[in-house]
């Protein structure tokens, strides 16, 4: 591992404006992911151009993906007898990735990962693997999830009652040692990812109550961002089903 975290950004549902013209026919997931990435790019006027000129991968981790659009698509069929193409094209988990690559003109390798409570961690680990393979020079990792409207009662029923669910996104920009100097005119390293450990079957010692600040399945990236910003070297996350993860960071 030992990849460098160059940029971080978190976005809550109140931070986005769905009414912007560029967000016509989009979903909240797409806008959250787009806004999080935009915040990273805004750290330097030419950062996005630099990333486009180099091989930059995007890794989206999302548990429920575009469940809102899938649900709306099925509802239209059932209630109106009408299949709406826009809802189908947006119904894939991968449509978040399709939207952000198009919006920012990024043509490098890109992946959508969905591993329920570990969607953020798995996207992060895959990004590090692909960096290690030298197939890419830079990696943007996004963890994003929303709560589908219209079926909230069903959706909430799949979580324990005391879990406070929220919508949000986190994004990080990563690179490895070989490519660090080339980007240093645009952005400087904030931390190093030392290790990501996932215990997908049962809980290990944890330090945080999931109810405290609100939870979404792919929120590991948001938690990673907050740890980087506050110089915390270890992020423990207890998942609603008792499984857990530990992210270890280093600061130079």
């Amino acid at each position: 591992m030992n990849n460098y975290i160059l940029g971080t950004a978190t976005v809550g549902i109140n931070d986005i404006n769905m009414m912007q013209p560029e967000f016509r026919n989009t979903s909240r997931n797409m806008v959250l992911a787009h806004t999080a990435l935009g915040r990273i790019f805004s750290s330097h006027d030419s950062l996005l151009e630099f990333l486009k000129q180099n091989t930059t991968g995007i890794f989206v981790g999302t548990s429920h993906g575009e469940l809102q659009c899938s649900s709306d698509f099925l509802r239209y069929i059932e209630m109106e007898g009408l299949a709406r193409p826009i809802l189908f094209q947006n119904s894939l988990h991968n449509s978040i990735l399709g939207f952000v690559t198009k919006a920012y003109g990024l043509t490098g390798p890109s992946f959508t990962i969905s591993s329920q409570h570990f969607s953020g961690e798995d996207a992060l680990c895959l990004a590090c693997d692909v960096l290690d393979s030298q197939m890419i020079q830079y990696a943007l990792v996004v963890g994003v999830d929303t709560i589908p409207s219209g079926i909230e009662d069903i959706f909430y029923s799949t979580y324990k009652k005391d879990v406070k669910l929220v919508e949000g996104a986190g994004a990080v920009l990563l690179t490895n040692k070989q490519n660090l100097s080339a980007i240093s005119d645009y952005i400087r390293p904030k931390a190093i990812i030392r290790d990501v450990k996932c215990n997908k079957t049962k809980a290990v010692g944890t330090t945080e109550n999931v109810n405290e600040k609100g939870y979404y399945d792919s929120n590991a990236i948001e938690k990673l961002c907050k740890a980087v910003e506050t110089n915390i070297a270890r992020v423990d996350t207890e998942k609603p089903d008792g499984s857990s993860s530990v992210l270890s960071l280093g600061f130079e």
């Binding site: 991968g57 995007i58 094209q89 947006n90 449509s95 990735l97 399709g98 939207f99 690559t101 198009k102 920012y104 003109g105 990024l106 043509t107 490098g108 390798p109 890109s110 992946f111 197939m135």
Partner: peptide
């Protein structure tokens, strides 16, 4: 070997 890319062109 493998190779991956994105079009950044259209949703479908």
């Amino acid at each position: 070997g493998s190779g991956f890319s994105s079009d950044a062109h259209h949703m479908t």
